[in-house]
């Protein structure tokens, strides 16, 4: 029992399972394979965004510009589809990823090398990137009919009962998991966030880590920019507005500590799944979707309060009896 309580991924998985079971009993169609596949597909973009955001938060940073990045990368990619609709789909995807990466590089280089605090930097680019959509597209909207079938078709290709979007997400999750757990640089992110001073002693360079995570976060947002516009068949300046908060919320729910150094890929994915299930369950439960925001706010607050409870305050153990009681001697 205590193991389950200590391991937040398992606790969260159990909560989600209970939730899904409960909803399934109330509304059986919710747990039909079709609907489950739909929910997974619908949550895929959130899954991916959460991975990028988590890497940033691990280094004690935050990237508020991701939703604007989605909108701008999506718009640039969709505009290419509008002007030349019959290029191989990889071209559109690559353009979106490159755009997103450049935007991430802008964040990363100013944060890492000029020393602008991440929250202010990405607050600025949150506004700037979204504005650039209008500067770039002249305020026009790219509609489904103008994008062409190649652009729109790809994310919806069914493979083994789920969409290609889902499989992209799976591949990305595995990639991020391998990076975070199996590479020196990935483990270095935990070191930098957990104890920047000690990381410096170990020869890990904070600036390079920052540049890396903001660029990766931007690249993932770029990819999601393509997927978002292609999936919903529209590109304009307001898409994904406020989505950055959903992403951060999913991270917090998934146990990623805003203080840095703590967070896992399964945890973050479960955090996103939790929100994804809630969003998709509301209509099934005949609750208006207007509840969504309030619920996610409530869940974030509950999650941070629970996190704070589990962290013990540092008390000094000086008295020999206190040290013995704390089990200092093995």
């Amino acid at each position: 029992m205590s193991f389950i309580l200590r391991n937040r991924e398992i606790a969260l998985a159990i909560i989600i399972a209970l939730m899904v079971t409960g909803i399934g009993i109330y509304a059986p169609p919710f747990v039909s394979p079709d609907n489950i596949s739909y929910v997974l597909d619908d949550t895929s973009i959130l899954f991916m965004m959460v991975l990028g955001q988590m890497m940033v938060i691990l280094t004690r940073g935050i990237d508020l510009s991701v939703a604007s990045n989605i909108a701008l990368s999506g718009m640039i990619s969709a505009s290419l589809a509008e002007s030349s609709p019959n290029l191989p789909v990889i071209t559109y995807i690559a353009l979106a990823i490159v755009t997103g990466t450049i935007l991430g590089l802008i964040n990363g280089s100013l944060i890492a090398f000029v020393g602008i605090p991440p929250i202010v930097m990405t607050l600025g680019t949150l506004a700037a990137f979204r504005g650039l959509i209008v500067v770039y597209g002249g305020g026009n909207q790219v509609n489904a009919s103008e994008m062409g079938a190649v652009f729109q078709g790809f994310p919806k290709i069914p493979i083994l009962g789920v969409t290609s979007t889902f499989w992209i997400m799976v591949a990305l999750s595995i990639g991020v998991f391998v990076f975070l757990n199996m590479t020196r640089a990935g483990r270095g992110l935990y070191a930098v966030g957990g104890n920047p001073e000690a990381a410096r002693y170990c020869g890990i360079d904070l600036s390079r880590q920052q540049l890396l995570v903001y660029t990766l976060s931007g690249a993932i947002a770029g990819l999601c920019g393509y997927l978002w516009t292609a999936r919903y068949g529209v590109a304009y300046s307001e898409i994904a507005s406020g989505f950055e908060l959903t992403v951060i919320a999913a991270c917090v729910i998934g146990g990623v500590s805003i203080a840095g150094g703590v967070g896992t890929v399964p945890g973050a994915l479960l955090g996103a799944l939790f929100l994804g299930v809630i969003v998709n369950a509301l209509p099934v439960m005949q609750i208006t979707p207007f509840w969504q925001m309030a619920i996610s706010g409530f869940v974030i607050l509950t999650a941070v309060i629970l996190n704070a409870r589990s962290e013990k305050r540092g008390i000094k153990l000086i008295l020999p009896e206190a040290r013995r009681a704390a089990g200092g001697t093995p």
Binding site: V252, W291, G297, I300, L301, I305
Partner: peptide, 18 residues
């Protein structure tokens, strides 16, 4: 409770408007 204000107010931002 001693929570970081940035997370708390991201939460209450959703809660209040929600």
């Amino acid at each position: 409770i001693g929570l970081p204000s940035i997370v708390v107010t991201i939460g209450t931002m959703s809660l209040f408007r929600g």
